[in-house]
Each structure stands twice: as structure tokens, then as C-alpha cells.
């Protein structure tokens, strides 16, 4: 589905990603863990096409296309979805209008006609049930006045509506209470299929109790320093990042 090769990215003069290699196949769930400042969110942003970052080396092939050549909207239209760590409030744009525009632009990109209003509303109803999102919220402005948990659930709701091939969840668990966490995880698990894939970026093992990853990668100082199965997350939870840091630092020397 996606192949990331030797990806380097900087913001200003500061190099943040220092050679990421990652291969994700359809049907897989990958977790990316790592301490603060290791580059997790940068990786998510670079994949989604945020222009603040400059890719200095490497390539990313997404479903046979060179992802880095595509504008952010085309990456989304190709089936990439980023659940934002900090979802943006957009006063005056209703959630519904926003989603309708998004869905129809994606359809137009694939040469499909606009979705009939009736089907669209049925889809909204079905998907908002999945994330237990209050119907009132879908009629409000995008994320405006939403609580932290509502914002995150709204991300998962959007993901459910747009049905991406690859979803990158950037610390979707941060700021969530245990109930919201369960709802988000239920949503992800319901959407999971053999045709799509997920990258779950998180600090904590907790989310991975609900969304069970096939692979866990540890990102440190802009590189993936270890990869393993789901047990790696448990090990991290028990030992913390200090050991990783020490190992890595001694390696550097």
C-alpha cells in the first residue's frame, strides 16, 4: 500500500526526519511510538502534505504513485487520511457541508458523480452512530466549540465517511477519557478491512489494547530504531523510553 524509503524532512534548518523506512501492506495496522520530539507528528504531517516541512531526501510510493509529487488534496483523494492531533475549528462551515464537499470532490477526482443527497444523509446517519457522535454536532460548524473528545470522535467520523485506504491517526488518543478511547477504537476496528491499512501514532500502550497492531515501530530522533510485534509496545510500557534512548545514544557514539 505504502512504501517509505529513506525519508528525510526538515523545518527551517532543522532536520527532523533522518531517514525513515517503512512498508505497510493492505490489511495491516502499524503503531508508531516514541518519545516527545522524536518526529512522529512530523511524519504524519509530511505524509499528509503539510507545506511547512521540506522533504530533503527519499521517496514515498502510495498505491503506485509518488505521493510526494501530489498536492495535499490529491493525496486525500488517492485515499490517504490524517486524523489530526489538533483538529482545526472552522467557524461558519458546517460539518455536513464540509463533508459533502470533501466526499464529492473525492468522487469527482475518480470520475464519479456527486452522491445523491438522500444517500449522503443515510451515510451520515450510519457513520455518526458508529462513533456515537451527537447528531447536533454534525450540523454545527466544523469542530467549533467541540470538547477535546468530540473533536477526536469527529476525526474518526470523517474517516468513516471518506473511507480511506490508509489512515494515519496522529495521537488520536491524547486527551481522551477511557470511554471516548473505546469509542474511537470501536470505530477504527469496524472500518478495518483487508483492503485498508492504519498507522496509529501514540505515546501510550493503552490505545493498543483496543486497536491491536500487527507491527510496532519505535521512532527516535527521526529514525525508526526498533520494530517488532505488539509485544514491543508492552515492553516499552514497562521499561519506558529511557532504555531506548540509552541504547541509541551509545550507538551514535
Amino acid at each position: 500500500m505504502i512504501t517509505i524509503k529513506n525519508l528525510h524532512a526538515s523545518i527551517g534548518d532543522k532536520e527532523i526526519l533522518k531517514g525513515i523506512n517503512l512498508e505497510i501492506k493492505a490489511g495491516e495496522i502499524h503503531a508508531i511510538m516514541g518519545p516527545n520530539g522524536s518526529g512522529k507528528s512530523t511524519l504524519a504531517s509530511v505524509l499528509a502534505g503539510r507545506e511547512d516541512y521540506e522533504v530533503t531526501q527519499g521517496e514515498v510510493i502510495f498505491n503506485g504513485k509518488n505521493l510526494l509529487d501530489l498536492a495535499a488534496e490529491d493525496r486525500a483523494r488517492e485515499g490517504l487520511f490524517l486524523a489530526f492531533q489538533y483538529p482545526v475549528e472552522i467557524p461558519g462551515v458546517s460539518n455536513i457541508n464540509f463533508l459533502k464537499t470533501a466526499l464529492n470532490e473525492i468522487r469527482a477526482y475518480h470520475g464519479q458523480e456527486e452522491m445523491p443527497a438522500k444517500d449522503f444523509l443515510a451515510l451520515v446517519k450510519e457513520k455518526q452512530k458508529l462513533v456515537e457522535l451527537d447528531g447536533k454536532l454534525t450540523n454545527r460548524s466544523v469542530n467549533e466549540g467541540f470538547s477535546g473528545g468530540e473533536k477526536k470522535r469527529n476525526e474518526i467520523f470523517q474517516m468513516a465517511m471518506l473511507n480511506p485506504k490508509l489512515a494515519v491517526l496522529d495521537e488520536t488518543d491524547s486527551g481522551l477519557d477511557i470511554d471516548a478511547l473505546r469509542i474511537v477504537a470501536t470505530g477504527v476496528n469496524a472500518l478495518k478491512s483487508k483492503d485498508n491499512a492504519f498507522v496509529v501514532i501514540t505515546h501510550y500502550q493503552r490505545l493498543l489494547d483496543y486497536i491491536v497492531p500487527d507491527f510496532v515501530h519505535i521512532l527516535y530522533n527521526g529514525k525508526i530504531v526498533r520494530s517488532g510485534g505488539k509485544e514491543l509496545a508492552l515492553e516499552l510500557e514497562a521499561k519506558g523510553y529511557d532504555e531506548i534512548k540509552k541504547q541509541f545514544e551509545s550507538l551514535e557514539k
Binding site: 507545506e51 488534496e73 486525500a76 483523494r77 472552522i90 464540509f98 464537499t101 470533501a102 470532490e105 473525492i106
Partner: peptide, 17 residues
């Protein structure tokens, strides 16, 4: 960018805003 990341092109995003 948030709108772009949902597949909404720059012109449409500008119009929405």
C-alpha cells in the same frame, strides 16, 4: 490545509472559508 487534507481543493477550500 485541514480542508485540503480531506480532499477539498484549494479553490473550494477558499470558497468555503
Amino acid at each position: 490545509f485541514y480542508l485540503n487534507a480531506r480532499g477539498i481543493g484549494r479553490e473550494s477550500a477558499k470558497k468555503l472559508l
